[in-house]
Design a protein around this nucleic acid. Structure first.
Lengths: 289, 289
DNA sequence: CATCAAAATACAATCGATTGTATTTAGGAA
DNA sequence: TTCCTAAATACAATCGATTGTATTTTGATG
């Protein structure tokens, strides 16, 4: 059972040519119904399974789409991936999911590998470390179609699927303000990434609109992991202002902060109101905290 | 830039043979240091990138491992995947992550595709629908190495990496009992799957040990989605017993139940104690509910 | 029955890299 | 300088499927 059967095996067994077998298996009109049926039966009998490597090599295309996200464990990304898989499935494509783990080096390796495997295209959301674009430009020169979603880079001629982070940041912050917050902290990510820059800009704009002073020290940059949220919460509490609001650029850090606040006896939302970003499923259950 | 450069392009440009180029790029001792360097330089210059399809076809192996899980959004699975990727990376393997979405049909398609792409091996956790094994037996006959983790099937000669679900179910239930619960409900999954069967068996055993009557109607089978948890909670509340404990075979359903209880004014853990299974990150933050 | 177009099938090259074998080259010993 | 071996490189087949072209078969028509 070890050796996979090929179209040549089928051809030999039936004393016909491999090209006919190939055409039959691809349902080409150049093969008669009768021999098609015979070939299909034989293929079944021998447990034939097309070697996609060979097929793709010859056709010099693949029906595989690469998807690169920072981490699949983030609800936002896993839900996007499900959507991608659904659409790909309908279009007859396969999806390869890859995690950069927020590391530029991994992102580079992953892209090199996808290109080497001649994927049909790539969908990606860059890592927090992606401040150099060599690997992306390389992919572009290479002729591999790709686009960004959520987290993007400004590269001429490459499209992005984005939300309006500025507006979202503005809305989130204004929401806090309208709920009576005056000292609003903000957790943001690397400013090299547009999404975080924009969310922060929205935050500033909202403060500005409502004539609330912008305080540098209330804006904390990190990688927005849960621990970063805890550290951020501690930092905010240590400031001379009575923090009463927090806009976190992602939910995970917001949760970290929430845990820390709780530990310190700071009540949410009585003492501090929090708005997170990402719509992690936890957020649905967390409000009674 | 469109057309990818091949070893033949390099060979032609340097007026040498493609086999030498191949050997140079693979650092074979059969090529002199000097020409190796020249070839490497040229390859770089032309932006050469090995065509893995061709390479794998010729070598008739790939360095890709397929991983199939029900859903990547489950924390348990995404954390396992991270571990797998780590180990694979060290071993020089690539990982293809696939989601069966708990559907047998998808699992079949995924496996067929992985086999067609001649993956080196497969790691899988079966879907809740996997009660037929044809596709798995096929993979076995095919000679592709694979093993199960977490959710497995009894197939002669195929290994599994498992936890002791029986013991875990027993411990969880006993924990509730020792905390004073007497009417303990249980959410379980499809009994065709060993993990659920074993967790349920552990639950029964714990009841038995503590001489608590086992009541069929308090054991609810479902697919353990959040909605199933809600429905289950409703069902439990409708029973003539005062439910004071719940052992859910996964966290997601436990959370659904929790939400429903909350909506109905049933306090957790004052009125009902809950033990979930999976260690979803939410569980870390949910206790104050 | 002969003819011819259409249908069915066979032949052969190809995709890009690898690898066993053959040939050439280089450098040292005689 | 000649010879010989080891090192370096070239040749050619191969992996499995696809596809353009050539050949054969079929069967309809006059």
């Amino acid at each position: 059972m070890e050796n996979k059967t090929t179209i040549h095996d089928i051809a030999r067994a039936m004393k016909i040519d491999a090209s006919t077998v190939s055409r039959a298996l691809n349902n080409s009109p150049r093969v008669s119904r009768k021999t098609k049926d015979r070939i299909l039966a034989k293929a079944n009998e021998l447990g034939y399974q097309r070697n996609e490597l060979a097929s793709n090599l010859r056709k010099s295309v693949t029906n595989t789409i690469g998807v690169i996200v920072p981490r699949i464990s983030r609800h936002f990304f896993s839900s996007v991936i499900s959507g991608i898989e659904e659409a790909a499935y309908i279009g007859g494509y396969n999806v390869i999911i890859c995690q950069s783990m927020e590391q530029l080096e991994r992102e580079r390796k992953i892209i090199a590998n996808l290109l080497a495997n001649r994927v049909a295209g790539v969908l990606l959301s860059v890592s927090m470390e992606t401040v150099e674009f060599d690997h992306l430009l390389n992919m572009k020169n290479n002729g591999t179609p790709f686009l960004f979603f959520d987290r993007h880079c400004e590269i001429e001629g490459v499209s992005s699927v984005l939300i309006d982070d500025f507006q979202a940041g503005f809305d989130a912050t204004e929401h806090l303000i309208l709920n009576g917050c005056n000292n609003i902290g903000h957790f943001s990510g690397p400013q090299e990434l547009a999404i975080y820059r924009n969310r922060t800009a929205g935050y500033k704009k909202a403060l500005e609109k409502h004539r609330i002073p912008y305080r540098q020290e209330m804006v904390l940059h990190s990688r927005l992991m849960e621990e970063d949220g805890e550290v951020g919460a501690r930092t905010l509490l240590s400031l001379p202002y009575k923090v009463d609001g927090l806009f976190s650029a992602n939910d995970v850090a917001a949760i970290g902060a929430m845990k820390y606040f709780k530990k310190e006896g700071v009540k949410v939302p009585e003492h501090v109101s929090i708005v997170g970003f990402s719509n992690e499923p936890v957020s649905g259950i967390i409000d009674p905290l």
